[in-house]
Computed example of a mutant assay.
Amino acid sequence: MHSVSLKLFVEFNNIESRHTSRGRVSFGAGEFSVRLNDVNQGRRNCKLIARASERDAGAGAEAGGAESESQQNTSFFERNQMYALMKQQMELAAMSENYEEAARLRDSLKLFEEEEPVLRLRGLMREAIANERFEDAARYHNEIKEIAPHYLLKCSSDATTLGIRVQARSVYIEGRSQPLRGQYFFAYRIRITNNSNRPVQLLKRHWIVTNANEKSEDVWGIGVIGEQPVILPNNSFEYSSACPLTTPSGRMEGDYEMKHIDKVGSKTFNVAIAPFALSTLGDVTDNI
Rank of each mutant, 00 (worst) to 15 (best):
N37S: 05
R51Y: 01
F27A: 08
E257G: 11
T193S: 15
A63D: 14
R43N: 11
L85N: 13
T280P: 00
Y239T: 07
L119R: 09
I208R: 12
Q178H: 13
N211F: 02
T280D: 00
M86V: 08
W220F: 08
E174M: 12
G175H: 06
Y83C: 03
E253M: 11
I147P: 02
E227I: 02
G23V: 12
C155S: 12
G175A: 08
D283E: 12
S249E: 15
K267G: 12
M95A: 13
A93N: 03
E253R: 11
E217R: 14
R165F: 03
Q71E: 10
C155H: 01
D218K: 10
D107L: 03
F32W: 04
S236K: 06
Q228V: 09
E91L: 04
A57V: 08
R55D: 13
N195S: 06
P199Q: 02
E127D: 13
G64I: 07
Q81V: 09
E54F: 00
R122S: 06
G223C: 09
R22F: 04
R165L: 10
A84P: 08
F269K: 01
F77D: 01
E238I: 13
G64E: 12
I129G: 02
R43W: 01
N98C: 04
R55G: 08
P275V: 07
G123K: 04
A212W: 00
E217W: 03
K47C: 04
N194F: 05
E78M: 14
L48P: 07
L8F: 11
L8K: 09
N195Y: 11
R43M: 07
L111E: 15
Q89L: 14
V200L: 15
G282F: 08
Q183C: 08
R181I: 04
H150W: 06
L8T: 15
S249T: 13
E238Q: 14
G254H: 03
H260A: 12
A102L: 06
P229L: 08
N234T: 04
N131E: 10
R51A: 03
G42E: 07
G42Y: 05
Y151T: 00
K204N: 15
N80Q: 07
S17T: 14
G42P: 05
K87H: 04
N235D: 10
E214M: 11
Y83G: 02
I129M: 15
Q167E: 15
P275Y: 09
G64F: 04
L245Y: 01
R198C: 00
L278Y: 01
G123R: 10
I273Y: 02
M95W: 01
E54I: 10
G250P: 07
A94V: 01
A128N: 07
M90E: 14
G23E: 11
H2E: 03
M258I: 07
C243I: 06
S21P: 05
D286T: 05
I15T: 14
H19Q: 11
